[in-house]
C-alpha cells in the first residue's frame, strides 16, 4: 500500500508506534509560524516547551506544548495583552490507541483580537496528569470533569474532580479510551444489577441539590445615593 492511499483511520490501526519512525504528524514548515501571531510569539518565548506546530484544514493553527508547562503557557496566552485568549471554548482529549500518548486539547479564542488557537498537550499513558485550567477559565469545570470521566486524565488542582457522565461508582474503566471494549468490561447482567443498585441521589453533592431548590433571593448591590448626581445644580453653578 502506498503512502498516498492511506487514510487517517489506517494510521490509527497500524499498531505500536515504532521508535525512530517518521513523525506521523503533519508538521507545518517553520515559516508557517509567522502566519499566526500567537504561534510565532510562543516559539519566541517558550521555545523549548513548544513541541510542534500544525496547520489543520481551514487554517486552524495547532500548537503542541509540554504538558508540564501547560498552565504557565496558557496563563500567558490568556493574560498577555498581545494575545488575550479570554475564552476557552472547549477542553477535550483524544486517544489514538496503540500506546500513543493521549492528547488534551484546549480550544482557545480571543474576543479581543478575534483569533483562534488550539493548544494540545501529549500525555504518556503512564502519566495521565495535567494542571487544571480552572484558575484561568471557570467554565472548564465540567469539561475537565468529562475528560477525567471518559479518559481517566487527572487534572491537578481541579476543586471537584469526579465523574460527570458515567455513574459515580462506575468500575469498568474509562469508556473513550481505545483499549475499552465497546460493550464494557462487565456482563450485561452485572451491568444491569449495578445500574439498578445505584442511588441517583448520590450523583449530586448537597450544593447541587440547592441549585434547583428554594427560590434564590436576588441581591442587588446597594444604590449609592450620595454618589448620584444632584439634578438641581450643574457644575460650576453651586
Amino acid at each position: 500500500m502506498s503512502d498516498e492511499s492511506r487514510s487517517g483511520l489506517d494510521a490509527v490501526d497500524e499498531g505500536v508506534l515504532v521508535e525512530g519512525a517518521a513523525s506521523p504528524y503533519n508538521e507545518a514548515p517553520p515559516e508557517a509560524r509567522n502566519d499566526h501571531a500567537s504561534v510565532a510569539a510562543l516559539y519566541q518565548r517558550f521555545g523549548g516547551a513548544v513541541v510542534r506546530h500544525q496547520v489543520n484544514a481551514g487554517g486552524q493553527h495547532v500548537v503542541f506544548v509540554d504538558p508540564s508547562r501547560s498552565l504557565e503557557i496558557l496563563t500567558w496566552l490568556r493574560d498577555d495583552a498581545e494575545h488575550r485568549y479570554d475564552m476557552c471554548s472547549d477542553v477535550t482529549a483524544v486517544d489514538y490507541g496503540a500506546g500513543r500518548p493521549v492528547n488534551v486539547v484546549y480550544q482557545l479564542f480571543s474576543t479581543t483580537h478575534k483569533r483562534a488557537l488550539r493548544v494540545r498537550c501529549e500525555l504518556p499513558l503512564d502519566a495521565l496528569e495535567i494542571d487544571s485550567v480552572m484558575p484561568l477559565w471557570k467554565g472548564v469545570d465540567w469539561l475537565e470533569r468529562e475528560v477525567f470521566d471518559l479518559f481517566g486524565i487527572t487534572f491537578r488542582g481541579h476543586p471537584d474532580l469526579r465523574r460527570i457522565l458515567m455513574p459515580h461508582d462506575y468500575a469498568e474503566g474509562y469508556p473513550l479510551r481505545k483499549d475499552f471494549p465497546l460493550r464494557g468490561r462487565f456482563s450485561r447482567e452485572e451491568q444491569t444489577r449495578r445500574a439498578l443498585n445505584q442511588d441517583p441521589e448520590r450523583f449530586y453533592i448537597p450544593e447541587e441539590f440547592e441549585v434547583g431548590g428554594a427560590v434564590q433571593e436576588v441581591r442587588l448591590p446597594p444604590v449609592n445615593v450620595t454618589a448620584a448626581p444632584d439634578r438641581g445644580t450643574t457644575a460650576g453653578e453651586s
Partner: peptide
C-alpha cells in the same frame, strides 16, 4: 483490549 487500563478509578 490493546492494553490494560492502568489505574483503577
Amino acid at each position: 483490549g490493546l492494553a490494560v487500563t492502568p489505574a483503577a478509578f
